[in-house]
Write a protein that binds this DNA or RNA. Structure first.
Length: 301
DNA sequence: GTCCAGGATGGGC
DNA sequence: GCCCATCATGGA
């Protein structure tokens, strides 16, 4: 094999309106995050594609291109193509935001967050199981505690790659979690219900009764209905997963406390807005509800 | 000590 | 279909 077919660096061309610091700003919003590390305008993460693990470091070069360095292994050309696809989807690089920015410019809620975080894209959670677990973990508890629970979960049941004395974690597989019993999770202070939900869903995924590919073939409403039928996944979690993992632009976690509080703040209200009031405000966002929500979150977190 | 948090479920009506 | 008690723990 000709060694010149291998390489450890990839260049990715970015949309003109992409802003790395806006995106790293989102990624560094919580210091307890355990699935990647942000430092000195660089992002380090383990990316898993077809059970292959790539430890990557991402930063910008002087030409506003994304530079991806492989830290644990070289790539052949097929792996390179797969990794580029993964990263383009992760940062939603193939979505044209022109229309969203036009809408936002004249929107009473969105014009401020969009001005402040221009260039931000919805950062994906490509791993379907991770997206569902993160949704369930985050139900009805404050974000700080949610990050603590996720870290315990990942460090107990996930694997890691060591690099320069640091561990970079891989989210636990559904196969691993499918073998657990609820006490394995309640021990780390997850509620019994959430423990049951996560294990049941891991078993669904393991036996192929639910998959990201299956949902990809459905339209938004069908996919939402499919997810909500599953115990532990309600309207909020379904839309969170559809937004961050399946990338439906119209996904809208309208019950989200963060969204509600963000609107309360921006509207200078002395009470929380009702669902009807939010729907009225969101009327102009058609097909961009997910992006609107993501930008509104940035006001608070 | 009190209130709230990136909600969901199952029961009653 | 809507309302509501309950889950359950930690953060502020």
């Amino acid at each position: 094999m000709n060694t010149q077919e291998f390489q450890d660096e990839i260049i990715i061309t970015l949309p003109f309106d992409f802003n790395l610091s806006a995106n790293l700003g989102y990624l560094s919003r919580n210091t307890s995050e355990c699935m990647y590390e942000v430092e000195n305008a660089q992002l380090i993460k383990v990316i898993v594609i077809h059970e292959n693990r790539y430890l990557v470091r991402i930063h910008l070069n002087n030409h506003q291109q994304m530079v991806v360095h492989l830290l644990n292994r070289p790539l052949n050309k097929w792996e390179k193509a797969g990794l580029i696809n993964y990263i383009r989807e992760w940062f939603d690089l193939d979505t044209d935001l022109t229309q969203f920015y036009e809408i936002a410019q004249t929107d009473q809620l969105l014009h401020i967050p969009v001005q402040e975080h221009y260039g931000l894209r919805i950062i994906g959670l490509s791993d379907f199981f991770e997206a569902i677990c993160w949704g369930i973990i985050g139900q009805q508890i404050n974000l700080t505690f949610a990050y603590t629970l996720k870290r315990r979960f990942v460090e107990k049941f996930g694997e890691s790659i060591e690099w320069q004395g640091k561990k970079f974690w891989i989210f636990p597989t559904c196969e691993r979690i499918a073998q657990l019993t609820p006490p394995d999770l309640t021990d780390m202070k997850m509620t019994l219900k959430k423990s049951e939900y996560i294990i049941e869903i891991a078993q669904l995924l393991t036996r192929g009764a639910l998959s990201k590919e299956q949902l990809k073939n459905l339209n938004y409403k069908e996919a939402e209905k499919t997810l909500i039928k599953i115990r532990g996944i309600g309207p909020w979690t379904a839309n969170y997963v559809l937004m961050r993992c399946l990338r439906f632009k119209e996904a809208f976690p309208i019950d989200d406390v963060g969204l509600i509080n963000s609107i309360k703040t921006l509207q200078n209200m002395d009470r929380k807005p009702t669902k009807e009031e939010i729907l009225k405000l969101a009327h102009h966002w058609k097909h961009w509800e997910s992006y609107a929500t993501f930008y509104l979150w940035r006001i608070l977190y």
